[in-house]
Simulated assay, not measured.
Amino acid sequence: MAVREKGSVKAVCKLGWYGDKCTKSCSNCFNGSCEQASGHCERGCKPGYHGAKCDKLCNTHCRDSVCNQTSGLCSDCLRTHVMDSTGSPECTDGCVDGKKGSYCQKQCPDHCYNCTDDSCIVCEESFHGDDCRKICPAKCEHGCQKDTGLCTSCQVGFYGPLCQSSCGYRCKAFDSGDQFCNFSDGACFNGCSDTVYGSSCDQNCSNTCRDQTCNDKDGTCTNGCVDGWKGRNAKLHVQLIASHVRNHLH
Rank of each mutant, 00 (worst) to 15 (best):
S184N: 15
D175H: 15
D130P: 10
Q145D: 05
G160I: 13
D218F: 14
G48F: 00
G228K: 06
A37R: 01
K46C: 01
A37C: 02
T60Q: 06
C91G: 03
A138S: 04
A2D: 09
K230Q: 10
H244N: 05
V238R: 05
L78T: 09
H250A: 00
H61W: 05
C67A: 00
C104L: 05
D175C: 07
H250F: 03
D227E: 03
D55T: 09
V3F: 10
T152R: 11
K139A: 03
D117V: 13
G19H: 09
T208H: 10
Q203W: 08
G19W: 09
S75K: 13
H50P: 00
I135W: 00
R232I: 00
D118F: 02
H40M: 07
Y169E: 07
T86N: 06
R79T: 13
G72F: 11
F174N: 13
C112I: 11
R170P: 03
N59C: 02
C41R: 10
D194V: 12
K53C: 01
S75G: 03
G51H: 07
L236S: 07
L73Q: 04
C192H: 12
C120A: 05
K6Q: 05
G101K: 07
S184R: 13
C209K: 04
F30R: 13
L249C: 07
K24P: 01
G157C: 09
Q239V: 10
G16V: 10
V226P: 00
C132M: 05
L78R: 09
T60N: 06
N114F: 14
G94E: 05
T222A: 03
H248W: 03
N182Q: 10
R43Y: 04
T148F: 08
N207Y: 12
D118L: 11
G94C: 14
P89G: 11
K99R: 15
A242C: 12
C132E: 06
C13W: 04
G191D: 14
A11H: 07
S200H: 12
Q212I: 05
R63E: 08
D20L: 11
S184Y: 11
K106N: 08
G198S: 11
V9D: 06
C132G: 02
G72T: 07
S25Y: 13
G48A: 02
A52D: 01
G143D: 01
V122T: 13
G149W: 02
K53L: 01
C22R: 06
H250C: 04
C192A: 12
G87P: 01
G219L: 11
K139P: 04
V226D: 12
S33I: 12
C104P: 04
C123G: 04
N28T: 14
K217E: 00
V238D: 08
G51L: 09
K100H: 10
K46N: 11
